[in-house]
Design a binder for these strands. Structure first.
Lengths: 224, 224
DNA sequence: TAGATTGTTAATCGATTAACAATC
DNA sequence: TAGATTGTTAATCGATTAACAATC
């Protein structure tokens, strides 16, 4: 038994799996809140739009064991996911860019609920520097090295206009930050050692616009 | 030649390709702005972190033709991408949820720059209803059917807290909207005929947190 | 011309799904 | 016990990459 627990996922999980884990976690937490105690791979798959096969494959990477005929114990599943995603730790975030989007992020309740704490906010715009966002004061970019060192920052969020994003990324990388969330409409160039995830509303909307166009001719034909 | 132009991509492109198209477009526009006129698949791949093979495969779906020894004419590439993504049209968006995130989206300059126009903003909160965001007034949910009908809405953006998101989605679908951008932390249930794209900052941060943990043991070993 | 680059076919790689023995 | 559900192996599917003839 202690043997079994030893086989922690030391290697990195495949990207598609990683991206599904947060969804499993949210699903598990919802189920937990609803008072359920067991869930099967079929139910879970149904809830997330996956096959039960995919669910079982995914969960087999985790530190949970299902039980024949019953499925997975929700509390245990939830805690295994929490552990794998390190959702029980505080992750400290520095936010660069205090425009509308930056402010929205800093004030977004979901972040704190899931362990992400915005520890510092920077901006280049002198008119914004010094203003308050929640209980943080916007600092000039020159305060970045100090803030990163002091606040033990894990993740940098780039919420500046596209033309400034690369310079900001360079600065964050120079400060030793190894994970960036890029909200700007540019492809950042960073060293391989730095993890980047991109999130762009406009890009998502463009994807939707494309799908919308190609769907109406076809989708309503063979929908199940 | 008119034969060649006829073979428009009537069928839907594979999802991974669709998701790369906006990146090609942004890249092409940057190149265009910089005054370049030709770009090869190798250069494009380098800029976007793709192999030249992938680039050529992707672009072969489009209505562009490259030229041996020169590559693709940037203006032509840009316009083919624009056409495929319908980025030359106005897309009308209804935004539900006028919290920090909703407001940020409504005021985000990139949207209008890329042809997306927020035509109406709704919220449930009586304290928010009636307030202004840019030159839009926040309307009650009851005004939704009217707004959708009148404003010829293409896309719905859901920026409400998770517990309300499904009800909002149901309402939008009932109004005939076929494309949703979901920013809430729930898995929406919608008919197959409705396109959904999800974007969740917390999920992206969780992905980063996971990658961060698994990277520092490994990445700096075999980095190129 | 010689060399670079496309467009496309074939090979590889990886992810999803199916299937099924083990098991509660 | 009989039946449901896991964990895992094998089969399928699809996406990425390699390779190369055509061509400018």
């Amino acid at each position: 038994m202690s043997e079994k627990l030893e086989n922690r996922p030391q290697t990195r999980l495949p990207d598609p799996v990683i991206r599904r884990l947060p969804r499993y976690l949210i699903g598990a937490q919802e189920l937990e809140a609803s008072g359920a105690t067991w869930v099967s791979s079929v139910e879970l798959g149904h809830a997330l739009g996956l096959t039960s096969s995919t669910v079982r494959q995914d969960l087999s990477h985790l530190d949970v064991e299902g039980v024949s005929k019953r499925g997975y114990e929700i509390a245990q599943l939830s805690s295994a996911l929490t552990r794998t995603l390190r959702a029980d730790r505080k992750h400290r975030v520095v936010l660069v860019g205090a425009g509308f989007l930056g402010r929205a992020i800093a004030l977004h309740g979901d972040l704190t609920r899931y362990g992400f704490e915005v520890a510092a906010v920077m901006d280049v715009n002198p008119e914004i520097i010094g203003t308050s966002i929640g209980n943080l004061k916007v600092q000039p970019m020159s305060a970045l090295p100090d803030a990163v060192a002091r606040e033990h920052i894990d993740i940098g969020v780039i919420a500046v206009p596209a033309p400034e994003a690369q310079a900001v990324a360079d600065a964050l990388v120079a400060m030793g930050i190894l994970a960036l969330l890029n909200l700007a409409l540019v492809q950042l160039k960073v060293p391989d050692s730095v993890q980047v995830v991109e999130e762009r509303i406009v890009v998502s909307l463009q994807e939707l616009a494309y799908r919308l166009r190609t769907s109406d001719g076809e989708r309503n034909v063979g929908a199940s």
